[in-house]
């Protein structure tokens, strides 16, 4: 190991490059599956988002304001968990390390999760939960539309199936956002507060990085920025009808898609992964 002052010098980088050229097993050598790694990451980004949102939504089970809402929320959570099985299942396959969808869900720590920060936000009141759902659904719907034309047929197939479910999620959350935004003074206030509080967590949905660029170049996943116009149009339409004001702040919290999360994710995982962690190797 070089002494500390030697690290990060051009000489060290050069040394590593020459070493790698001479020895293909050297860690600095270009990996043949570098594209697969970006593909794996892209699948985690969607699969982890559906998993964590499904978890949050399921926290409402039995506690929502009306029986119809208990049923509808359980249905949405169920769809999201079902989609998670497909996305993480494919991620595990692409990774090729013998892990399963359950291994990915239950045996990774927070820094290996790639979900949007938006979905780990606490439920808050029912209006807050619905607003989070609407902001996510509007994006999710655009993403799945794009993914159903993915050049990877496995991705296209999952997206087509999930797209039908999410079209319904969006229809439902839009409808409720309109009714609550344009309901009583109190419901309007709650919905505007929810929108304002969640707004800084929406920008992350459209920020691409080099991994996104790799899968976009291969036609597997869309460039995140390309989803913005459709999302904006849905928001203008629905929030306009809901008489809610779209915040004009462009500030965006980010990091979820790269593994830097809020404090909330650790608690979600502590709860979700409890049995797998407490009884390692048991089959359920």
């Amino acid at each position: 190991m070089p002494s500390l002052p030697d690290m990060n010098t051009p000489e060290v980088a050069d040394l590593a490059r020459r070493e790698a050229e001479a020895n293909p097993n050297h860690p600095a050598a270009p990996q043949p599956d570098a594209g697969q790694e970006a593909f794996f990451e892209a699948l985690l980004r969607i699969g982890d988002s559906t998993l964590i949102l499904g978890h949050r939504v399921s926290e409402w089970c039995g506690h929502s304001p009306a029986l119809e809402e208990d049923i509808a929320l359980a249905n949405v959570a169920l769809d999201l968990i079902g989609q998670t099985q497909l996305w993480l299942g494919l991620a595990a396959e692409v990774e090729g390390q013998g892990r399963s969808a359950d291994d990915l869900a239950y045996l990774r720590d927070a820094w290996d999760f790639r979900n949007l920060l938006l979905v780990e936000r606490p439920n808050g009141d029912f209006g807050h939960t619905l607003m989070r759902q609407f902001l996510f659904d509007a994006w999710h719907h655009e993403l799945l539309k794009a993914l159903s034309a993915s050049l990877d047929p496995r991705v296209a197939e999952i997206a087509a199936k999930a797209g039908k479910e999410v079209a319904y999620h969006l229809e439902r959350s839009s409808d409720l956002v309109v009714r609550l935004g344009d309901g009583t003074a109190e419901s309007h206030r709650r919905m505007q507060e929810a929108l304002d509080a969640l707004w800084p967590y929406t920008g992350e949905m459209f920020l691409g990085d080099d991994k996104d660029a790799k899968v976009a170049a291969r036609g597997i996943f869309p460039d995140p920025a390309s989803l913005r116009a459709g999302w904006d149009a849905t928001l203008r339409h629905v929030l306009g009808e809901a008489t809610l004001q779209i915040p004009d702040s462009p500030f965006a919290h980010k990091g979820g898609r790269q593994g830097t999360h809020t404090e909330h994710l650790g608690y979600i995982l502590a709860e979700m992964q409890f049995l797998q962690r407490a009884y390692p190797g048991a089959s359920w």
Partner: peptide, 10 residues
């Protein structure tokens, strides 16, 4: 009780 505002708004 927490859902009263929601039902009323609908």
């Amino acid at each position: 009780e927490d859902g009263a505002w929601f039902r009323e708004a609908l």
